[in-house]
Design a protein around this nucleic acid. Structure first.
Lengths: 177, 177
DNA sequence: TTCAAACTGTACAGATCTGTCTAGTATAGT
DNA sequence: ACTATACTAGACAGATCTGTACAGTTTGAA
């Protein structure tokens, strides 16, 4: 059901029934329930896959670019994905809307945001508690939400400029010089 | 009905059945279907209510504050709502995740973003097509998404600082002086 | 008072969804 | 060859959801 993560992301979690998942995976229903206790855990596993994927991406960006270029490289990657039309918002922010508050998915969501904050903190060269880090997370989540709502990839161009402004403000100090 | 907008916002659209709506409204199911063709239109009406509400808020902010203070006043209002614990993300961004692409709700969502862009453009004193406007929309949506995901009202303090940075960059020109 | 419109409660059709169960089949280790 | 394990297809229970139908009641205006 690794390939079924496609359905959860593309069509939404609640809109995707178990039957459609097993049909696409070419697998019997009993097999699915032998591997996952229920849909909640399947959703958590789906997010776990997404987390592994984005973690791999962030690792690659960190390996390929100096700190000062990483945020822009990350957003540029998202921009290309949006241009390809494969972007349906942030899988984790979407999951917040769709899953119950006590779902096992919540733990995965929290880990995603922790990883993201660490990435931004390293890129800025500051502690994760610095406001600039959270500002970049806002920038990321906002761009993803708007790209999904307005179906407009150009929002990432704007987001890259915004992230640049944030980075400038951080290196120049909060008071601007 | 109108009070059922509470349920859609608080519990999510897909998680809220028609039966729960009519139970809370103290109304018969037939009455609901006499006033709305189906759930899609009920959802659209719910978003219409939210749009009227946020429009009223933005009008009030515009009447009460000079342009340079409006963005901060708006975000401060959201911050207070978050501290009250009544915030579950942006109703329109959430609806993007939950409703189908051809739902009548989509038109209302688009109008919301147009109104929001107009508010930010007026506050900055620039044309709606200026990048700073879209940056403030990113700032808004990102803050709402993170407040919902992390249940942390303090994100609005960070967002207000970010919006300040954007406004500074706009008045000082894109190249920073 | 009369009458039409709109409401009420409730039952029900039809669809869909999660999760269980059965019965039979392939596979792999010993 | 034997056996444990995991798979398959599919039926099925039980719940829930949207939307309709029906019969009776309230309401309000002429």
């Amino acid at each position: 059901m690794d390939a079924a993560s496609t359905l959860f992301y593309r069509d939404g979690i609640n809109a995707t029934g178990i039957d459609r998942v097993i049909a696409r995976a070419g697998v019997a229903k009993a097999s699915l329930y032998n591997n996952f206790a229920g849909k909640d855990e399947l959703v958590a596993a789906y997010l776990e896959r997404r987390l592994a994927r984005v973690t791999r991406l962030l690792d690659e960006v960190e390996a390929a670019h100096p700190a000062s270029r990483r945020v822009d490289a990350f957003l540029a990657h998202l921009e290309r994905a949006a241009q390809r039309g494969t972007l349906r918002g942030c899988a984790f922010a979407n999951a917040v809307v769709e899953v119950a508050a006590d779902s096992p998915a919540r733990a995965v969501i929290d880990r995603f945001y922790q990883r993201l904050e660490r990435f931004f903190a390293d890129a800025l060269g500051v502690d994760v508690r610095e406001p600039g880090v959270r500002q970049l997370v806002i920038c990321y989540d906002g761009a993803m939400a708007i790209a999904a709502a307005l179906r407009d990839p150009s929002v990432f161009t704007t987001a890259r400029a915004l992230a640049d402004t944030v980075a400038d403000a951080v290196v120049r100090g909060p008071r601007g010089e």
